[in-house]
């Protein structure tokens, strides 16, 4: 009997496919998310839009919040650690958190190295903007990927860019000859072995969710249409006027992303979604997606 194998860690993310993972800051929100049909919750101290507004250094949440959320729901609970912060990640693992997001939403602890996620029993999800980044994270042991998008903006444009980019690059790798892959690995800054695996499987070896800017049911369905395996919704739900209604609508739109009549129906009378931010109005140093290497 062995724990923490790739199959067990990646498999956990496979079970989340077609689902919505929601950011929550307390037990009450976690219950609303579970009730709405979320496949997991991400326990945080503040949702990304509040982190953005608060400024300063964003760190792992108070363990009390994770504990409160873990006691409140039976679905898996994820939590965020700073990029490269080995101890925050070990604390979350020791607490029994089900998945760790090594996240650019928090202020990085290391500006050169990501965590060696292969060394952990708990699985990790990491952000990516292109295949090079995705493959490096897989090489370090990430068991799940998500687009970075631009968190806390309610603006889908960056998530769309990242999903299209990764998928286009995956298609290219799959169609290449094996003798071209080493140079492609060099060009992408990607581990050669990961590219070989992508070519063999015809897809990424781990699931890739959409994240960073999803604010409406139509946004969630768009990301599924573009090939996401599921979606993370951060600020979009609990910064909207009616979180319970919004949460349910986003879950349904994700399941039936090509049923446009249904999405029209469930988008009616949802109230105001979160206020969005135009990306070009963000100073480069305020772009969370630039964090990570």
């Amino acid at each position: 009997m062995v724990t923490g194998t790739d199959r067990v860690k990646r498999g956990m993310a496979e079970m989340q496919k077609g689902g919505v993972i929601m950011d929550v800051v307390n037990a009450e929100q976690a219950k609303i998310a579970e009730e709405a049909g979320a496949v997991a919750v991400m326990a945080l101290e503040r949702v990304p839009s509040d982190i953005r507004a608060a400024g300063g250094v964003a760190r792992m949440a108070d363990p009390r919040i994770m504990e409160e959320v873990m006691n409140a729901v039976s679905i898996p609970v994820m939590a965020k650690a700073r990029i490269g912060h080995i101890v925050e990640a070990r604390i979350l693992e020791a607490m029994g958190v089900d998945y760790i997001d090594e996240s650019e939403v928090l202020t990085p602890a290391d500006e050169e190295f990501h965590l060696n996620k292969n060394a952990f029993t708990v699985p990790f999800v990491c952000g990516c903007r292109d295949l090079g980044e995705a493959a490096r994270r897989i090489g370090e042991g990430a068991s799940m990927l998500r687009t970075k998008g631009e968190p806390g903006t309610g603006n889908i444009v960056e998530a769309v860019r990242h999903m299209r980019k990764v998928n286009a690059q995956v298609r290219k790798v799959v169609s290449m000859n094996e003798d071209e892959l080493m140079t492609e690995a060099k060009n992408l800054g990607a581990p050669y072995e990961v590219l070989l695996e992508i070519k063999r499987l015809g897809r990424l070896p781990v699931v890739n969710f959409a994240a960073g800017g999803i604010a409406t049911p139509a946004d969630a369905a768009l990301m599924m249409e573009l090939g996401a395996d599921g979606v993370f919704v951060g600020s979009g739900i609990f910064k909207s006027e009616n979180p319970a209604l919004f949460a349910k609508a986003i879950v349904e739109a994700t399941t039936h992303y090509q049923d446009y009549k249904l999405i029209a129906e469930l988008s009616k009378n949802l109230g105001t979604p979160m206020k969005g931010i135009e990306i070009s109005s963000l100073a480069p140093e305020d772009r969370m997606q630039e964090r990570g290497w």
């Binding site: 009997m1 724990t3 923490g4 067990v8 498999g11 956990m12 898996p76 958190v97 029993t121 699985p123």
Partner: peptide, 26 residues
């Protein structure tokens, strides 16, 4: 248990296999 306790084990499954690779996740 939780995800950190998820595991793989070889199982004997009656009428199916004496050595089935079983992946247990939560």
């Amino acid at each position: 248990g939780r995800q950190v306790d998820s595991f793989e084990a070889e199982l004997a499954v009656k009428d199916v296999a004496s050595d089935f690779p079983a992946v247990f996740i939560r």
